Amino acid sequence: MKIALLKSRNVRREITIFDYKPEYHDFLYCPVPECGCKLVYVNSSSTHPYFRSHRNEKHSSNCPYLFENYNQQALTNICCVEGCTQIADYQVYLYDYYAPPLNKEFMEQDFTCPYLCEAHMYENEENAIGEKKPRGRVKYLYSNKKQAQGFTKYIPINKKSIFIDSAINQPNDQVNLEIINVNSQLIQYLARFPELLREIDPRKFEEIVAEIFHKKGFSVSLTPRTRDGGKDIYALQNGIFGRQLFVIECKRYSSTNKVGVELVRGIYGVKMAERATAAMLVTTSYFSKDAIDFASPLEYELSLKDFGDLKSWLKEYK
């Protein structure tokens, strides 16, 4: 958390981590009205400053910070880019696939660059040169410094767990989002706290989008986890006017990382190549102006769905 409520006999105001003073130590609380959870200020050499829940307290069941329970192991890993002090968001792996007759996957953590923060992960991808295919070689800015065959993949470091409370008939056990099956209970919870979509594994996000489309009457199938073909979901609808096929790509991005026009062109290219009815790109972020401008004249062939659309889908899910 970056904001806290400073509350004492004479003072009641919100402060940020940059406003903190030692004399505020005993007067920090969750900024969400009616929560009342006491906070502490944390500033260590391995992390940027932040506020966290006091070890003897927890947030109320309706507080969006209920899930703010950090995995301490994750906090010990710093981005491997020289000079970067950010906590790592991703483990970096080298991936390759051995074609028939072996039919075997290879995936091993990249010892030349084992951890990256989100910003440097995107920079690493954007500067990659080469075709991501089995037995291929890709030159990256940070990873795969040994120039081994294969290409880089990123596994999110699970930093947060959540408490699903009794309001949706779940015991007060600590539950990891990554291992919860995608079902109506999980989607109801995400409808209450949609920001959590940005914290989950990208594959789990794809499964949630697929379930939403399934609930809307589509027959859905996810492409294999290791596939990098520009689409994540096939959604088929059998209607009175025939069969319609949608190819869907999902991008689980932070709120500040807008989806650019290249990705939009990419999914549209997949739609054309596979002769699908329409293409859709769904993101937990938003779209750049260039991306929107590209899609505007293609409204019957290409749809862009951002975080606002996702929130509506979650609320409508029944």
Rank of each mutant, 00 (worst) to 15 (best):
Q73E: 15
S166A: 06
L222D: 01
N169K: 06
D173L: 13
I17W: 03
R227A: 02
L177P: 07
Y70N: 01
E299G: 10
F287M: 06
N56G: 11
A4C: 05
V81D: 01
T256G: 05
Y41M: 10
I267V: 07
Q185P: 07
P156L: 05
A210S: 14
S288Q: 08
D165P: 02
S143Y: 06
F51W: 03
V270D: 05
I292P: 10
D309N: 04
S45D: 06
S53C: 15
H120D: 09
P101D: 09
T152P: 02
N69D: 10
S255V: 10
K38H: 13
N69T: 02
Q149T: 14
N176C: 12
C63E: 00
L245D: 06
Y317P: 07
M121Q: 05
L75W: 11
D293E: 13
L222F: 01
F294Y: 05
S61C: 14
D309T: 05
Q188N: 12
Q185C: 11
A4E: 00
L186H: 13
I187Q: 04
N183C: 10
N69V: 02
P156E: 02
L310N: 01
N56S: 10
T226H: 00
G230K: 03
E57M: 12
D173S: 03
L39T: 06
E178A: 13
V40S: 11
A148Y: 09
L75Q: 09
T47V: 03
A276Y: 09
E274V: 09
A191V: 05
R137W: 15
D19T: 04
L196I: 14
H54M: 10
D232I: 07
P101F: 08
T226I: 00
R275M: 14
E301A: 10
T85N: 14
H120N: 11
K160D: 05
E118H: 06
Q147V: 12
D173M: 14
Y234A: 04
I129F: 15
E195L: 05
I233G: 00
A295Q: 13
E131K: 07
L245A: 15
P156A: 00
V261T: 14
N176Q: 15
K204E: 15
T223S: 00
Y24R: 06
D165E: 13
P114V: 14
T16N: 09
T112V: 12
Y234P: 00
G266I: 09
G239P: 01
D96N: 11
E316I: 08
F67M: 04
K104N: 08
Y286W: 07
F294H: 15
K2Q: 13
D19V: 14
T223H: 00
S161M: 12
V282N: 03
K7N: 00
K146V: 02
S288G: 12
K58S: 07
K139R: 15
K160W: 15
S312R: 15
S254Q: 05
V42F: 11
K153T: 12
A273P: 07
I78N: 02
T283H: 09
I267R: 02
E249T: 07
C117A: 03
S46H: 11
P49I: 07
D110W: 03
N257M: 02
